[in-house]
Simulated assay, not measured.
Amino acid sequence: MSAVQLTGTMTAPEDRAEAVRAAMPEHIRLSREEPGCVFFELRETDPGVFEVSELFLNRAAFDAHQARTRASDWFRVTGDLPRDYDVADL
């Protein structure tokens, strides 16, 4: 099985950016603790622009991360925000 890498950005309008910032630490912590997480970085590069880079050992670990995320407070805060992500099997 090959590793899976996700990179890209998520954009929040000014009126929602603070809620995203508040939810980030827990989302980062939980993501980094997941089995199969090799690397997880989430940072604000410009006001309201959040860059993500993540690497999981395999597709199963990546899919489990996606499922956990969709059931989280992070998704409640960010689920409808525009994302521009690339996902690659390495």
Rank of each mutant, 00 (worst) to 15 (best):
residue 1 M to G: 09
residue 1 M to Q: 11
residue 2 S to M: 13
residue 2 S to V: 04
residue 5 Q to K: 08
residue 7 T to E: 11
residue 7 T to P: 01
residue 8 G to E: 00
residue 9 T to C: 03
residue 10 M to Y: 02
residue 10 M to A: 13
residue 10 M to H: 04
residue 11 T to K: 11
residue 14 E to H: 09
residue 15 D to I: 11
residue 17 A to K: 07
residue 17 A to M: 05
residue 17 A to G: 12
residue 19 A to K: 03
residue 20 V to I: 15
residue 21 R to N: 15
residue 21 R to I: 12
residue 22 A to I: 15
residue 22 A to E: 11
residue 23 A to N: 02
residue 23 A to F: 01
residue 24 M to I: 07
residue 25 P to T: 07
residue 25 P to S: 12
residue 26 E to C: 09
residue 26 E to H: 15
residue 26 E to Y: 11
residue 27 H to F: 03
residue 27 H to G: 04
residue 28 I to H: 05
residue 28 I to A: 02
residue 29 R to L: 06
residue 31 S to W: 01
residue 31 S to E: 00
residue 31 S to C: 03
residue 31 S to L: 10
residue 32 R to N: 12
residue 32 R to G: 09
residue 33 E to L: 12
residue 34 E to C: 00
residue 35 P to V: 02
residue 35 P to Y: 03
residue 36 G to M: 01
residue 37 C to P: 01
residue 38 V to H: 05
residue 38 V to C: 15
residue 40 F to D: 00
residue 41 E to D: 05
residue 41 E to W: 02
residue 42 L to W: 02
residue 43 R to Y: 07
residue 43 R to H: 13
residue 44 E to P: 08
residue 45 T to K: 12
residue 46 D to S: 11
residue 46 D to C: 09
residue 47 P to G: 00
residue 47 P to S: 12
residue 50 F to E: 14
residue 53 S to V: 08
residue 53 S to W: 07
residue 53 S to I: 03
residue 54 E to S: 00
residue 54 E to T: 01
residue 54 E to M: 02
residue 56 F to W: 10
residue 56 F to Y: 03
residue 56 F to M: 00
residue 58 N to S: 13
residue 59 R to E: 00
residue 59 R to W: 03
residue 59 R to V: 10
residue 59 R to D: 06
residue 60 A to M: 10
residue 61 A to V: 05
residue 62 F to P: 02
residue 64 A to F: 02
residue 64 A to Y: 00
residue 66 Q to N: 11
residue 66 Q to S: 03
residue 67 A to V: 09
residue 67 A to C: 02
residue 68 R to S: 10
residue 68 R to T: 08
residue 69 T to L: 13
residue 72 S to F: 11
residue 72 S to R: 06
residue 72 S to V: 07
residue 75 F to W: 09
residue 76 R to M: 14
residue 76 R to G: 13
residue 76 R to Q: 15
residue 76 R to S: 13
residue 79 G to N: 15
residue 80 D to V: 13
residue 80 D to M: 14
residue 81 L to C: 05
residue 83 R to T: 01
residue 84 D to C: 04
residue 84 D to S: 06
residue 85 Y to R: 04
residue 85 Y to N: 05
residue 85 Y to M: 10
residue 85 Y to D: 04
residue 85 Y to G: 13
residue 86 D to G: 08
residue 86 D to S: 10
residue 86 D to N: 07
residue 86 D to P: 00
residue 87 V to T: 14
residue 87 V to A: 04
residue 88 A to F: 04
residue 88 A to D: 12
residue 88 A to E: 06
residue 88 A to I: 14
residue 89 D to V: 12
